[in-house]
Design a protein around this nucleic acid. Structure first.
Ligand SMILES: Nc1ccn([C@H]2C[C@H](O)[C@@H](COP(=O)(O)OP(=O)(O)OP(=O)(O)O)O2)c(=O)n1
Ligand SMILES: [Mg+2]
Length: 873
DNA sequence: ATCCTCCCCTAC
DNA sequence: TAAGGTAGGGGAGGAT
């Protein structure tokens, strides 16, 4: 309705009419938003790891495999006129003639069959009948009746498909990424006017987005905000408050460290310690309100949603928007509104709430002035956040006469420079200063001594480091107030919430805090996480995004002159059963998966980091449609300069070198949880494999849980070996086995699939990958993430839509299900088969066959030596 | 013991 | 219609 926000604006999301007034402009002068330096710092000439036995095996197998494929293709030599050359088809639902017959007719005559609906490749969909929803989804495709195939064969030429369009009134299809409208444009393959030339470049780069949960992802303005857009990360970051917060924190730490190195202020530890906690009052909204002084005394909040709905109380009931409040003023807080709340929820508490837009540049400028002032005064400064600093003013306070005088002096200076108020808490340690700051707000100071500390009423969640989980864990033992903690022995506390947290609580509850300010610890991780707008339609999109995210991290590492060797990929995976998230384009309820990869050398090369990440992504084997968030961290850092002049760049610090895993044994780390197994399937596996599976699971599950933090999920007595791991979700118990006829069991497993993890050799072994010569890895990486502009369209078309798996072929020579062997692909396939109707019998058979082959494959390498025969049908 | 991996929690 | 990021502390359980 209203929202006049200009989406295109680069940095500020402020509508023109809301620009800062002249009195604010001075604050914004000299804006120098940090554009990171794009200095390319590549690490070259990496040594080849010696003794890499598996390397040749992989490539030999690859060669053999290719040769075999070529041979098979040659055998398929045409006895028929290739009338379907260039047709890539997919068959949906029940058909007459059968799938099998249609496939035969088409393939014998040059057609290519895709077992699932690749929107980038399929030229024709063959169906006799479509469910309504399916028909709608496919309305822009060429959906033809099987008669088109039959009659074309009969005529021995490709007939115009239009006459056989399913549902005669359907529009001419706008086929997808690689497609050109058939009859109209496909002239150069003039023999086949109905066929889109495979070598066509993508025309409209728009695909249909898979939208399983009615999120409206295909609406234009939504689509423009999905992570699949090329400039998504930039735009998202430009508008993300939390991203800004994180970046600013790092910047302020740098700034403080820099100042410290310059002045090297050493304080004589003679005087009594005085710590100040200085914190802006409702920072964002205070700054933003400088531009809207008329709202200063109204309940106001900073948030993206700018429709002022207070006039329309009726609409407010129904418009529970999921925009979050970054900061609200104290008037708003009197209504119960809090930072982080959804705006829809806040309006229920306070219909008159005014919203003002973000003003990130102003926040940054004001913060810089703030830090400049306090860092000059304090003996020691620790940057806590953009609006908050810890100061050691032991000396300064003494010089000034009293801590309180100094505090007021700081407040006056900051206000003069920024027109915003800070509150200051004063105490003998960090804890007390922090607690005092809370009491000081708004616009005041407060001093807390160890003596007065015991007088104030605090609940456990007032203590720093106590969030909801610890709060609940304590509450379940009846511990709610800080004074309750004092009554609990340390050992019991440790039992509740772990050693360190318990010790912390024990001390904090007594006003004791031995931490010292730290101003110059170098950072130990670089990361990027995005869990908003993440909706992928296929693996390729997921990998593209991972690549961009990795590049983003590398940019900041390069700018900071740091390199690292431990790469971790984190995936938020939609939890089974979860649909549309509460927050618009949000991640909803997810399982978190992570996997790390230790690189053989330290690096900040985006090619290497992203290759590692894509490898990890494939190992995690999450259905791309379920990915709701992606995060990458690089750790085990070193400074580039420190490393370049020493050999220790080539010896990753602290990284332990592990031996190779035989690919043929079940690695406990690769296991899904027990409950993901369908026992009816497992029971049909060869005994030796069953045994191995059980052994592997026993190995992993053999321990018991402690109460914390898992107890928080289900209070108390649920310490089953089962009852923890949220990351790798389990759905059923190991013991569950439904007695159905075999095909029905198989059908059940169609819908689960995760258990495949256990018997499918996942991709190349970690060590194998890591020890590949870098140029080989690069080559693989390039295949993983091909650079679109350079790639000839024909090439692009030849690689499957479910993507880059070309490189996988280099590693995998085992059985395939209709050409697929990566879990995500198999899942996609099966999902496609089962998404609407019951799966077709043939598909089930094909699946069964695949499973059989998998078992046989293991038979070759492993089972045979046990002398056990496969038991599958 | 100490390190590793894969998590979880907290704060702004 | 929205921008649910990230560094760092910490723990469990396995490997060495
Ligand atoms: N959930 C949150 C919490 C904070 N912030 C941002 C906006 C805040 O203005 C800023 C500082 O956080 P504070 O916790 O200091 O909160 P305020 O400064 O807004 O209020 P006050 O410090 O007066 O309690 O961080 C945010 O975007 N989202
Ligand atoms: Mg604040």
């Amino acid at each position: 309705m209203s929202s006049s926000i200009n989406d295109q604006s680069e940095c500020l999301d402020i509508p023109n009419e809301y620009q800062l007034g002249p009195e604010d402009l001075k604050l914004l002068q000299g804006i120098n938003r940090d554009v990171p330096n794009h200095k390319e710092t590549m690490v070259q000439n990496e040594p080849v790891a010696p003794g890499f036995g598996d390397f040749h095996t992989y490539f030999d197998q690859r060669k053999r495999k290719l040769a075999k494929q070529a041979q098979e293709q040659a055998q398929k030599a045409p006895e028929h006129k290739q009338i379907f050359a260039g047709v890539v088809f997919h068959i949906n639902g029940f058909t007459q003639p059968s799938h099998y017959e249609l496939k035969k007719l088409l393939i014998e005559r040059g057609g290519r069959f895709l077992h699932y609906l690749s929107k980038t490749q399929v030229t024709h969909i063959i169906a006799s009948n479509l469910a309504h929803s399916k028909a709608k989804e496919l309305q822009n495709y060429r959906v033809v009746r099987p008669e088109w195939v039959v009659e074309s064969v009969r005529a021995n030429r490709l007939l115009c498909w239009h006459s056989y369009q399913l549902g005669s009134e359907r529009k001419v299809p706008m086929v997808l990424q690689n497609a050109v409208l058939a009859n109209e444009l496909a002239t150069e393959s003039s023999n086949h006017p109905n066929v889109m030339p495979i070598s066509r470049p993508p025309l409209p780069p728009r695909q249909i987005v898979v939208d399983k949960y009615g999120e409206g992802l295909n609406r234009d303005w939504v689509r423009r905000n999905l992570a699949t857009e090329k400039d998504f990360i930039q735009r998202y970051y430009a508008n993300s408050r939390l991203h800004h917060l994180s970046m600013w924190k790092a910047e302020m730490k740098d700034y403080v460290a820099q100042l410290r190195r310059k002045h090297t202020v050493k304080k004589p530890a003679s005087c009594k310690p005085v710590i100040m906690h200085v914190d802006f009052d409702c920072f964002f909204v205070s700054v933003s309100l400088l531009s809207y002084p008329q709202f200063k005394d109204k309940p106001a909040a900073v948030c993206h949603s700018q429709s002022q709905m207070q006039l329309d109380k009726d609409a407010l009931e129904h418009s529970a928007t999921s925009s979050q409040i970054a900061s609200c003023n104290y008037v708003a807080r009197s209504f119960g509104i809090k930072n982080g709340m959804f705006i829809g929820q806040a309006r229920q508490l306070c219909p008159g709430l005014v919203t003002v837009p973000y003003c990130f540049d102003a926040y940054e400028q004001i913060s810089k002035q703030f830090y400049k002032i306090v860092a000059q005064i304090a003996d020691e400064t620790q940057a806590v956040s953009v609006d908050e600093a810890l100061l050691d003013v032991s000396n300064a306070a003494e010089d000034c006469g009293s801590a309180e005088l100094l505090a007021q002096d700081i407040r006056k200076k900051v206000f003069a420079a920024t027109q915003c108020t800070v509150s200051i808490g004063i105490g003998p340690n960090i804890l007390l200063a922090r607690l005092a700051a809370k009491k000081a707000k708004p616009d005041g100071i407060y001093t807390l001594e160890i003596g007065t500390f015991f007088d104030i009423d605090l609940c456990v969640s007032d203590l720093p480091g106590v969030g909801h989980v610890v709060e609940d864990a304590l509450a379940s033992r009846g511990i709610k107030a800080v004074c309750d903690i004092r009554a609990v022995p340390l050992d019991m506390l440790k039992n509740i919430c772990g050693d360190k947290t318990a010790t912390m609580l024990y001390n904090f509850s007594r006003g004791i805090d031995n931490r010292v300010l730290e101003s110059d610890k170098p950072r130990q991780a670089f990361g990027a996480d995005i869990s908003w707008g993440v909706r992928f339609s296929n693996q390729n999109e997921a990998e593209d995004f991972v690549e961009r995210l990795a590049a983003e991290i590398c940019r900041s590492m390069v700018a900071a002159n740091r390199i690292g060797s431990l790469v971790t990929l984190k995936i938020k995976k939609r939890q089974t059963g979860q649909g549309k998230p509460a927050k618009f384009l949000g991640h909803g309820i997810c399982d978190n998966l992570s996997k790390s990869n230790s690189l053989p050398q330290m690096t900040n090369d985006p090619a290497k980091i992203s290759a590692a990440c894509i490898y990890l992504l494939q190992q995690l084997a999450v259905d791309p449609l379920d990915i709701r968030g992606v995060g990458i961290q690089v750790q085990r850092l070193n400074s580039l300069e420190a490393s370049t002049r020493s050999i220790d760049m080539f010896a990753k610090p602290k990284a332990r070198v592990y031996g190779h895993n035989a690919n043929t044994s079940i690695n406990a780390y690769e296991l899904p949880s027990v409950s993901q197994l369908d026992m009816s399937i497992v029971n049909e596996l060869p005994a030796s494999i069953q045994q191995e599976l059980r052994a592997a699971f026993c190995q992993r599950n053999g321990k018991y849980d402690k109460a914390f933090p898992k107890a928080s999920a289900a209070s108390s007595r649920n310490t089953e070996a089962n009852g923890s791991r949220r990351g790798r979700p389990r759905k059923h118990s190991f013991a569950i086995s439904k007695n159905k006829k075999p095909s029905s069991n198989l059908l059940d497993s169609f819908r689960k699939l995760e258990w495949l993890d256990t018997i499918m050799p996942s991709q190349m072994d970690n060590d194998v990958w890591n020890h590949l010569p870098i140029n080989i890895r690069r080559e693989l990486a390039r295949e993983y993430v091909k650079s679109k502009p350079v790639v000839k369209p024909s090439q692009k078309n030849l690689t499957s839509a479910s993507e880059s798996k070309a490189s996988q072929a280099l590693q995998y020579s085992g059985p395939t299900l209709l050409g697929k062997y990566i879990l995500a692909d198999i899942k996609g396939l099966v999902k496609e088969w089962t998404s609407r109707d019951e799966p077709v019998a043939e598909d089930i058979d094909e699946f069964a066959e695949y499973i059989e082959k998998l078992v046989e494959h293991r038979d070759l390498v492993k089972v045979q030596q046990h002398g056990i025969r496969p038991l599958l049908p």
